[in-house]
Amino acid sequence: MSAVQSRTGAPAVRQDPSARQTERGRPRGAAQRPAARRRSAGRGRRIGWLLVAPALIAYSAFVLWPLIQGIQYSFYDWNGIGASTWVGFANYLTVFTDPDLLGSIVNAFILIAFFTIIPVSFGLVLATLIRSMRAGTFTSFSQTVLFLPQIIPLAAAGIAWSWMYAQTGAVNQILNAVGLGGLARPWLGDYQTALPAVGLIGSWTLTGLCTVLLLTGIGKIDVSLYEAARLDGAGWWREFFTITLPGLRQELAVLITLTVIAALSSFDIIYTTTLGGPGRATLVPGISIYRIGFTQSQVGLASAFGIILMLLVLAVVLPIQRLSKVRDS
């Protein structure tokens, strides 16, 4: 800093030019940064919407718009071709008062035991056993074999199992071979065994998915937890209930959600095996909606039943998701 005489005679302090430039530059740069950030954020949002737009358009065209139309059709009596008649909530009332439609809903909830409880339980046991083995060829082979049913289309699985469930099929032949021929019967043609037989097909197709996903979840659990439990003298059951099961909470929530939806919206397996028979023993909402809409030409009633089925799925699945999040928090 250097002192010089001003015009008034008083000494003036002259600042260094670089310091003066720095003081002027700070507020200008500080003012420019928020504007630059806003421009960058706006450009990022536009790019994000451009990337999402194709999927959003497809989702709106094939999911949201049909859903809106289905809600609209559910308030009309319409055969799909001629003029429609406004009936209000009459279609919904029919769903809740028709014993056949209510029976199909009950059958769908019974299938949850076969599509959810059995596959998830077996998946837990198999994943734990495979995890306890040494990694090798047998472990990889077992995972592949267990996951194969998930790759097979459900329609093909239904056809194959319908052959095996036949009077002269593989199931009855095995029972005869082991001396249990008295149990042999046409499994899909018996009123008492048709629904459990169809449910076991679902168990077979979903067990591999449950096993592989749970095996992946077990691999993420810290190994030191198991070592500490063994040092404390914990056995296999205690390790399973205190370490493995709590560590698989997220995986279990995902699997329960997927399998419950598969049970309540089942269609492929039942359509290719029993078509809802014998009688109405294996009738489920998916088959009922198909029959009402395409065979009986009652589009309004079929739409109402579809909306009710969607609400049932949400009523079962949303508490599961919420419960898993509450336990993690």
Rank of each mutant, 00 (worst) to 15 (best):
V4C: 12
R7M: 15
T8N: 03
A10W: 02
P11F: 10
P11W: 09
R14N: 11
R20I: 07
T22G: 05
G29M: 09
A30P: 05
A31Y: 04
P34T: 14
P34M: 13
A35E: 09
R37S: 00
S40G: 15
R43D: 01
G44I: 15
R45I: 10
R45G: 03
R46G: 11
L51Q: 03
L56D: 02
L56Y: 00
I57W: 08
I57R: 06
A58K: 02
Y59I: 03
F62V: 13
V63Q: 15
Q69V: 07
I71L: 09
Y73E: 00
Y76P: 13
G80C: 12
V87W: 08
T94F: 07
T97L: 08
V106E: 12
F109V: 11
F109C: 07
F109I: 04
F115H: 13
T116R: 12
I117V: 07
V120A: 08
L124F: 03
L124D: 07
A127M: 01
T128K: 03
L129K: 02
R134Q: 11
A135N: 09
G136M: 02
T137G: 13
Q143V: 03
T144E: 07
V145S: 02
L146P: 02
P149N: 12
P153V: 12
L154I: 04
A156L: 14
A157M: 09
I159E: 10
A160I: 13
V171R: 12
Q173F: 01
L175M: 05
N176A: 01
A177Q: 13
V178K: 08
G182Q: 04
L183Q: 08
A184L: 03
W187Y: 09
A194Y: 06
P196T: 05
A197P: 10
G199K: 00
I201Y: 04
S203W: 10
W204F: 06
G208H: 07
L214S: 10
K220I: 13
I221G: 11
D222F: 05
V223A: 15
L225S: 11
A229D: 13
L231F: 08
A234D: 02
I243E: 10
E251V: 01
A253K: 04
L255W: 05
I256E: 15
T259F: 09
I261W: 03
A262M: 05
A263Y: 09
S265G: 14
T274V: 12
V284D: 12
V284E: 14
R291A: 15
R291S: 14
F294W: 07
S303K: 00
I307Y: 02
L311F: 12
V317T: 11
P319K: 10
I320N: 10
V326M: 14
R327T: 10
D328I: 06
